[in-house]
Write a protein that binds this DNA or RNA. Structure first.
Lengths: 196, 196
DNA sequence: TCAACTATCTATAAACA
DNA sequence: TTGTTTATAGATAGTTG
């Protein structure tokens, strides 16, 4: 039996496509995991697809949930400290976790990695008053945040009208100018893979 | 010479780590490309890391820029039409692009794929009045959008005070409730990989 | 540092249970 | 359909120029 080199083209057959999707998604997740571990780049992955009703995440849902619960118990000042010198902090923690691999189970290492990631993530997001409970599903983050902009503008606009103003020009202008400014700051070390 | 199986652990040596990072990043991008093509899942990837000063993107920057320029010239109604029946539209375009591979150069196929992706992306984002020029750096999207919420609330709050209202309770309340609601809607087929 | 090279390891397509 | 097997294609670690 000969096994041909696979042509890189859309698989029309749905069952074949699904089978390939599942295998390759698993492989891709593994690769993300490996790259993160090997090169000290913590990564969180969430994948939506027509074949999965729920998003696939890396690291594990339970790992993510445990870290969130743990972090919420910290006082606010401790949370703020996490934001300082993130790169050094991150690399030190990863090196430490890596050393611990010699005597710890793989699960424990994943916990270390997950914790580092979420402390950095929450440190960044804290600046924007985001609810950390939302962070385990970043797919919602973009969607809900944008809806929130319009919803709040509408609420404020209605509030002003109730006060007797005849038009909601300010709210209207806010909506018109909604296209966001392309700032010079960048979110450091963020990988965003978006599929539509 | 023997080549050992590589231990899955953080590479402390910086040059080794960078070499591995570059090789594996390339491999990961290729895998994303393949999964997208094979299973009809269009994907855009942007990667930040300590080793790259600029984010790495898939598809190519130029492809992305060309598509944005091209799309902006379309009338608004045509843009809105792109939002309709996205899945069917997407799959048809991918199948068509895939067929064209037989007689087109690889660059051309990538253009097709890029176009499909951006039409869908812009279709979704259009609902929120986002400036499409921002879409080539999705790292900004989360950052700037959240800043925008606070900025607009502040502007509206100030506006109301100028009208003689003594407090900005509504704006304050809006800020207090900023943690976003975990809605039931989901952004279909979105992969988000975030690294800190 | 970067670009090959290639032995070896890994992912996976197809076959089969 | 899901899981397992296995041959082959593909990725890449270590090396060389």
């Amino acid at each position: 039996m000969t096994r041909k080199k696979v042509k890189l083209a859309f698989i029309a057959n749905d069952s074949s496509s699904k089978a390939t999707y599942k295998k390759r998604k698993k492989g891709l997740m593994k690769k993300v995991n490996e790259l993160s571990t090997l090169c000290g780049i913590n990564a969180c992955a969430i994948i939506y697809s027509p074949y999965d009703s729920n998003p696939e995440v890396w690291p594990s849902n339970s790992g993510v949930q445990r870290i969130i619960s743990e972090f919420r118990t910290l006082p606010e000042m401790d949370q703020n400290k996490k934001m300082v010198d993130q790169e050094t902090f991150l690399r030190q923690r990863i090196a430490k976790a890596s050393d611990n691999l010699k005597k710890q189970r793989k699960d424990n290492l994943e916990m270390e990695m997950t914790e580092v990631m979420f402390q950095c993530l929450i440190g960044n997001m804290g600046m924007f008053n985001l609810n950390i409970m939302d962070l385990n599903d970043l797919g919602y983050l973009i969607d809900q945040c944008l809806k929130d902009v319009n919803r709040r503008i509408e609420i404020l606009g209605n509030s002003r009208m109730e006060l007797g103003e005849s038009s909601n020009n300010v709210a209207a202008e806010a909506i018109q100018t909604l296209p966001i400014i392309h700032g010079s700051a960048r979110v450091s070390r963020v990988d965003v893979h978006i599929t539509f």
